[in-house]
Amino acid sequence: MSIERRVEDNGKRLVIVIQGRFDFSQHKAFRDAYKEQTGKVHEYLIDLSGASYLDSSALGMLLLLRERAGDENAKVSIKGATSEVRRVLDIANFGRLFTIL
């Protein structure tokens, strides 16, 4: 269970990589991953390829990030969702709020 961040494309893209269960216990780590970001980010990319599980509080965390990104006119993309994680995103219809790659 971990959250890592890295900056790509000269600071225009912030990639947040989530490993293991993405649930409420990751709340602080996930927020910290984007909170301290300074400078203009054009895209937040959430890499879920290592995420085994995602619950409704994780959906809530994604919405918080979306709110922040909206203030900055940045987009939020999600990539690498496994079928189990993808099912949760689909049931919630999150494809309408995020670019799911």
Partner: peptide
């Protein structure tokens, strides 16, 4: 509700 709370 705050941004991270909703109702399916």
């Amino acid at each position: 509700l705050p941004a991270d709370r909703f109702m399916a």
